[in-house]
Every structure is written in structure tokens, then in C-alpha cells.
Simulated scan of single mutants.
Amino acid sequence: MPLGTLDRNPPPFFRQGASALSKLMVFSALALFLMVADTRFALTQPLRMAVATALYPVQWLVMRPVLWSASAGAYFESLQAAQEAAQQKLGLLSQRANQVEQLMLENSRLRKLLVLRERFAATGQAAQVLYDAADPYTRKVVIDKGLLSGVSAGSPVLDESGVLGQVTRVYPLVSEVTLVTDRDQAIPVLNARTGARAVAFGDPGAHAGALELRFMAANADVQAGDLLTTSGVDGVYPPGLPVARVEKVERRVESAFARIYCTPVALAAGAAHVMVLQPISSQIPALPEPEAAPEPGKKGKSK
């Protein structure tokens, strides 16, 4: 059969009805009608309620994992926030506890300092240690009192336990205190047990931070544990102030002098508040001026 004689139209059995454009126009008009009717007369409201009621269990089941995951995330976030807040509060309480302990320690030291001051008639004033001196080869500290506060060079400096040192340099607002453990510092002391006098020097050697009694005879009556106090013969320190305690006594046959090491009773490495006294030499009245010798021409006439 020739190709030109074939019918190109589909047989009637496969016809689909109206065209696509017609269907689009009909369904668009129907949708518009339903929207207007639903807006004016709420025709689909019962249908919506029925569908919502039927789908609520499905929605509830579908939302459970979402809500559980959200609640779990919120729980872990709140737990982490609570832990961080607890750690912050614990750190704050720890800091306050340390401050309370520090304040109690300072209060106890100040009370002891006031009690030590009441034992002596010398006038004094409280001061605070600012910092250690910059020179690493010396044992010096700087306090917050100077010339404007009436501090003078040579003034004894005490802490709550005993003699700490002596003011060696004074500035308008601050002063420099040389500790008893400095290698250039010497202080006359008295053995409270025997009454023997000696001189304690700062020990810069192997016993740094300690004192040494020098030029003591090998047979001197000195024992470990003896308390050394100021003798008061130097005109600087009032007598009876605790200075050091004998730690070790070495007696050698080849030496005529004993090696006596002492530990200062004051907190030479950790003093915070000190008492600055006036040197006792300032309380000693001045010597009377010598009387002028009579001139030779003014001698009395002999009778």
C-alpha cells in the first residue's frame, strides 16, 4: 500500500475527550468558584474540620520525634548553662574564701603587731610593704611611709613576730628597709637564756635568709633553740624585741670561734604590715654643754 494513502489521525478508540486547554479553563473556573464560595459561605469548613480531626493522630505521632529532639536539645543546653553557672559561682566563692582567709591572717598579724607595740614606750606608726627592692643581692623592702609621715633613717621596723629590719633610706613618700638577713646588716642581741651579749649578722652564704652569731667563743654557752632579743645598747632598737632563734651550733677544734646559725623570728620573706618605731636615741636627752672655762684675766683678786 502506498504511504500517502495511510490515515495519520488516531482511531476513534484512542480519543481522550476534551483538549488540555479546555480542561485548564474549566478547572480554573471551578477553583475560582470554590474559593469565592468558601470565602462567602464557608462551604468547605465542615470538610476541613473532618479532615483535621482525621489527621490529628497522624500529626501527633509525626511531631513526637521533633518535640523530643527539641526538648533533649533544650535539656542539654540548660544542663551546660547550669554547669557553667555553677563553676563560675564556685570560682567566685573560692575567691571570696581566699580573701576571707587573707583578711583573717592580716587581722591576726595586725592584732599581734598592736600587742607588740603596747609592750614598749617608743612611739610608732603602721606601714604596708609595697614591694621588694630591685637589687637581687640585697634583702630590702619598700614601705609606704616616708619623710612626709615622719619616718627617719635608722628607725627600727617590726612585724607581728619581732624585728624585721631598719630604715636605711627615706624618700618623701616611701622608705627603704634593710632586713636583718641582709649581708650588710648587724644588730646587737642578747641571749634570753644566759644574758650573754653578741652581734648577729646577715648570712649571705649557704644559709641565705638567716643570721649568724660571729666572734663567739667555741665554749660559749649557746644552744639550739635559744631566743635572741635586742640588747638596746646600740641606741636604735628598744631592748627586749625578739630577733632570732638559734638553729644550729658548730664547734670545731681547729677554730677558736663557733659557727652559730640563727633563724629570724620575723617574716623576712612574707611581711605585709609592719610597725615603724622611732629610734631610742631620739628619746635620750642631749648631753649638757660643757661649762666654759674662766678667762685668765677675770680671775678673782687675792686678798
Rank of each mutant, 00 (worst) to 15 (best):
Q166M: 12
V129S: 06
P156N: 07
S152Q: 12
K112M: 08
Y137E: 09
V142P: 02
A186H: 10
G124S: 15
Q125S: 13
A196P: 02
R193C: 06
V174I: 15
R109S: 06
N98T: 08
V142I: 15
N107F: 08
V189R: 02
Q88Y: 07
A82C: 07
Q166G: 00
G165F: 02
R197F: 10
A208W: 01
L114H: 05
D132H: 10
R197S: 12
D203E: 15
K112L: 09
L148C: 04
V142N: 06
V141Q: 00
N107D: 14
N191K: 04
A81P: 02
N107L: 10
F76A: 13
A186Y: 07
R109M: 04
Y131F: 13
P156M: 10
G165A: 10
L105S: 13
L90D: 09
Q88V: 08
Q166D: 01
G162K: 00
G202M: 01
E176K: 03
E160P: 00
Q80Y: 10
S155G: 04
H207T: 03
G154V: 03
N191W: 03
A200M: 04
A208P: 02
T194W: 12
Q185L: 08
S152C: 05
Q99C: 03
R111N: 05
E176W: 02
L148V: 10
A86E: 14
G195N: 03
E176N: 11
Q125M: 15
D184R: 05
T168D: 12
A134K: 09
A198G: 12
R119W: 09
A134I: 06
L179K: 07
V189A: 00
V177E: 02
V142C: 11
R169Q: 07
R193G: 04
A196Y: 03
L114W: 04
V170S: 02
A206Y: 11
A126M: 15
A200K: 02
S152Y: 06
Q80K: 12
A85C: 07
L190V: 04
Q185E: 09
G205N: 08
K112S: 12
